[in-house]
Design a protein around this nucleic acid. Sequence first.
RNA 1: GUCCCCAUCGUCUAGCCUGGCCUAGGACGCCGGCCUUUCAAGCCGGCAACACGGGUUCGAAUCCCGUUGGGGACACCA
Length: 486
Amino acid sequence: MSQVRVRFAPSPTGFLHIGGVRTALFNWLYARQQKGALVLRIEDTDQSRSTEESIQAILDGLRWVGFDWDEGPFRQTHRLELYRDHAMKLLEQGKAYWCVCKPEELEARRKEAEAKGLSPRYDGRCRSLGIVKPAGEAALRFRAPQQGQMIVDDLIKGRVVFDHEVLDDLIILRSNGIPTYNFSVVVDDALMGITHVVRGDDHLTNTPRQLPIFEALGFPLPRFGHLPMILGADKTRLSKRHGATSIMEYKKMGYLPDAMVNYLVRLGWSHGDQEIFTRQELIEKFSWDHVQKSAAVFNPDKLLWVNEQHIKQDDPAKVASLLLEYLISLGTMDPMKTEDFSEEILAYRLVNAPRESLVKAVVMVRERTKTLEEMAHWVTPYLHDEARIEEEAAKKFLTPAMAPVLAELTQYFSMLPEFSKPGWEDAFKKFVETKGLKMGQVAQPVRVALTGRTASPGLFEVVELLGRERTLYRLRKGVEYAQRAA
RNA sequence: GUCCCCAUCGUCUAGCCUGGCCUAGGACGCCGGCCUUUCAAGCCGGCAACACGGGUUCGAAUCCCGUUGGGGACACCA
């Protein structure tokens, strides 16, 4: 059995969108599972719509989501000679012919046919003209078979039958010498040795147009697989109206690449009742026969949930490094910068390596965050030595009345011989009890002193992360704040 | 208009090929409860679907036909 070779062939007319990512995903998964090759090909034969920025955006998007390719990126505009040669071969063999109809004429005839309720197909008027050397501008048309049937055994849709008579003679070479899509794909897929052409549903009806070209050129047929479309909440094709459609917007919103992949693959593929997959699991478990045939509605709520699951379950070190990258992109944290810390604060600094402390912080906050964006917010109180105290929170809990209690607690903590989470927790409970207070009455002010906020992870998880010195430092700062409030 | 594809809770889906185990399972969301030092998370429970009509069969979500609905394609776009 020969090696599986698949391809992702976007046209660079915009950013990499969700639908494109999913097409790339299925190709990538299959290539990795079969230990085959993924070829990246840029279909830029429409020169008026293709841009360099789009190519860059597509590559960036693929890299972010982690789909590595084995060959390419190839650009069709760099391969024009190849298409012309093959087109000429067809001409010589009488399998293609020159068409001298003007684009405007074709357009007019098409409109007319439509108005009469007929199929807007090319009427084939140049078919038997036998033009050898066109005088003026001319396009090359493929002489398509007119009877019989084409049978496609689609990986996803199953057996699909098309009648040849519904097809017309399509243009394979424009009058400017640039090939059209249906021709260049065939030449490329064949020459690149693609064994499985997996693409969007919208190409299903292009398949019967392409098959005869493979045959005319004497190329072996690849297998085809047509992935269903992704729809918006209103069940129309996903577009800007539905909100974010560029994959990079999800990066900005704090989604994990693995979560994105997980969600997108489940949108149209299933493995029993399993919802959460690692990349490795997907590669192992993926199979064409569980790919859904019908279109699926993109559900942002579920995507968010999947992201949350990955934040909670994935390797915290990995999440931390993604978070660090995210923090840097926000400007919240510059790991190279130390002047943030005053001498005084540095004295109390226990957490030296941002990466290491970040992993601990991730583990602490991950139960309560759904995205890196939220995580960035939750983790900030632990990034620096001093916590920025929120005014609203302080007003409510760091009150003058609270100052003596906090001061006493701080004193009490500072005298404890040993520092440990359970030790301090017990001590705290005893303190609250002997004072005749309720947990919440003391816990909230302490929370504000330690984190600057009214909502945080468990108090003693925070204490443990901060360590003895930073905890005491922040408590003292809290006491000062409460006293000043008088 | 012609051709092609599709059809299970609001959404993603399991089940369908190889009919009975389906009084249709899971997940998101929603509602209620438990837990609780805050915020979450977690746990328990609830609401909610086989598009419709004919067949075939002892028996159909599952097989066949039709209807309806949705989507796609019919460019010197990809």
